[in-house]
Structure formats: structure tokens, C-alpha cells
């Protein structure tokens, strides 16, 4: 009678089952890391979006305030109408200085009337593919309705 010795199915250091288990573990780890990095990027992008939108809103308020027209009135100081813009004061705004204080790359101010765009100013360079966040507000220019559009990136 010849004695049959039991041969192991796999002669490698790891068995096939262990290799598959390791492969599944690595796959799960890679999937987890991709999901986490994607969620972190999404969260960061959302925060950047909220911050930029609020910054453009604040910048539009600043421009409405700085370029607001001053009319006559009682006393020496006069008063400013709410939303009334002065074209000269708007043109004199140093958008570059404002942009440098924000640490952003690009800012633009546009003013539209019923006839189209009547004023445009920009500072900085808009990077290729960069997202632009704009705030549109109603304003008055010489008693006429106008739309102020402030964008940052």
C-alpha cells in the first residue's frame, strides 16, 4: 500500500483566501480614503462658496456706502439717499486697494441701467476656470433704477 501524503492546495506564503481578504481590505481602505477626501473637498468647497458669496455681499454694501450720492439738505453735511449712487464717486473707488485687503484674486463692479452696462471696473486677474461669486443689488443713478453687480473670485 502506498501512502498518500496530503499536499497543501497552495504552496505560497499566503493562501488564496488570505490574498482575497487582503485585497478586499485594501479595496475598502482605498474606497474609504477616496470618500473621506471627497467629502473633505466638498466641505471645503462649500465653505469657500459661502465665504465668497458673503464677501461679495459685504463688498456690494461697501460700494453702495462709499459711492452713495450725497444730496442737499438741512445743515452742512447733507444726507445720502438710500441706494442712490454717484457715478463720479463710483469711478473714483480704488477697487485694487479693496481687493488687496480681501486677499482675493479678482473683483469687478458693474452698473447696469435699462440701456445696458454703463459702468464697469475690475481689479486683479481672473484665474482660468475660477469660480466667480456675484451679488446683484438694485440701486438708483440720477433717479433712474439701476442694477449694481459686484463679483469676487
Amino acid at each position: 500500500m502506498c501512502k498518500k501524503t496530503r499536499q497543501p492546495r497552495y504552496s505560497g506564503f499566503f493562501s488564496l483566501d488570505a490574498a482575497i481578504a487582503l485585497l478586499i481590505a485594501v479595496f475598502a481602505y482605498v474606497s474609504l480614503s477616496l470618500i473621506l477626501s471627497s467629502a473633505a473637498a466638498s466641505s471645503s468647497s462649500g465653505a469657500h462658496s459661502v465665504s465668497s458669496r458673503l464677501l461679495s455681499l459685504r463688498l456690494s454694501s461697501l460700494i453702495m456706502d462709499e459711492a452713495g450720492a450725497e444730496s442737499g439738505g438741512f445743515g452742512e453735511g447733507g444726507y445720502a439717499k438710500i441706494g442712490e449712487l454717484d457715478a463720479q464717486r463710483l469711478s473714483a473707488l480704488d477697487l485694487g486697494a479693496i481687493l488687496s485687503s480681501t486677499g482675493r484674486n479678482f473683483a469687478s463692479v458693474s452698473l447696469f441701467s435699462s440701456e445696458g452696462r454703463i459702468f464697469f471696473s475690475q481689479a486683479g486677474q481672473l484665474p482660468v476656470g475660477a469660480e466667480v461669486f456675484c451679488t446683484k443689488r438694485l440701486a438708483l443713478l440720477s433717479g433712474e433704477m439701476a442694477r449694481l453687480e459686484v463679483c469676487v473670485s
Partner: peptide, 20 residues
């Protein structure tokens, strides 16, 4: 890293609202 990133995002949103 994920927790730090989310916390930084949350702090940024909170801070921008407070700036407003």
C-alpha cells in the same frame, strides 16, 4: 485629516457670517 478639514470649513462659514 477629514475632521480637521470639516472643522476648518465650519469655522470659515461661521466666521464669514460673523463678519457679515
Amino acid at each position: 485629516h477629514f475632521e480637521e478639514s470639516v472643522q476648518a470649513s465650519s469655522a470659515r462659514i461661521s466666521l464669514s457670517r460673523q463678519a457679515l
